[in-house]
């Protein structure tokens, strides 16, 4: 029944997020981060949202492909719920990003390739959500959604990751000429928090997706039982 049949990843998630929340606020920072100042700590909270979103949407994409090769209820539910939680992470990323941008660049939104790519990408996933809601026939809905997802994920990655990398003018770090850990003077220990942060936030949101999928599968099972019992009673009559 479980998305990942192991409860240990939940314990790892809890401990790692706690570590990230505490040490992300306490570690020493490199001194030459410019206007970012202490807000460079957002690296442990804002950035993992995006990394986690990409990983979770990748998992949803794999589930959609698996659904098309072997259509089972489980794959369909996993793909849908992983996508939902991936988008939740995306919205966390957008809103934290807007808040950070307002305090750093003076405006919540700039016409930057990274930001506009994300806006277009999220709109495409809005299409996925609409598709899920708008088809009544369950088998047809599942198949359409899976096919749409198989196409939309590579496009999404191209929009939010590849295009900003190729662009020449971007004020958002991680696009154009990229900022990385080595570009700061101090031999810093930000990596010690950043990589656990990516794993931690991703696992935490996978846990939420797992809970939602299990709830959804139970609900479908219950509805099928009711349909089935109706069928029997009408037969008797």
């Amino acid at each position: 029944m479980n998305l990942i049949p192991n409860k240990w990843y939940k314990i790892v998630a809890i401990l790692l997020v706690l570590y990230v929340l505490v040490y992300g606020l306490l570690i020493d920072l490199p001194t030459d981060v410019g206007i970012l100042d202490e807000t460079i700590r957002n690296l442990f909270y804002h950035v993992p949202m995006w990394f986690g979103m990409m990983l979770i949407l990748l998992a949803a994409w794999v589930n959609s492909i698996l659904y098309l090769t072997n259509p089972t209820q489980k794959r369909d539910v996993y793909a849908a719920e992983l996508t939902n939680v991936g988008l939740l992470m995306g919205f966390c990323g957008v809103f934290t990003g807007m808040f950070w941008a307002y305090n750093t660049w003076g405006t919540p939104w700039t016409n930057d390739p990274k930001l506009n790519g994300v806006a277009a990408g999220m709109a495409m996933y809005g299409g996925y959500w609409l598709l899920q809601k708008s088809v009544d026939d369950n088998m047809k809905r599942a198949r359409l959604a899976a096919v749409y997802n198989v196409f939309v994920f590579p496009l999404f990655i191209a929009l939010i990751y590849v295009m900003p990398k190729l662009s020449q003018f971007s004020i958002h770090p991680g696009s154009g000429e990229s900022v990385n850990f080595k570009s700061y003077n101090q031999t810093n220990n930000m990596e010690l928090v950043f990589y656990p942060a990516v794993i931690a936030w991703t696992l935490l949101f996978v846990w939420i997706a797992e809970l939602k999928s299990r709830y959804q599968l139970l609900k479908i099972k219950k509805e099928n039982e009711i349909l089935y019992s109706d069928h029997i009673t009408t037969d008797k009559i």
């Binding site: 939940k10 809890i14 997020v17 706690l18 929340l21 505490v22 606020l25 306490l26 846990w207 939420i208 809970l211 299990r214 709830y215 139970l218």
Partner: peptide, 24 residues
Amino acid sequence: VVVGIIAIIFILIVAYLIRLDKKI
């Protein structure tokens, strides 16, 4: 103090998630 408060909030959210997990 801030770190402690953030930790408490997170622990409570996790406790809620664990309870939900058990119920399901």
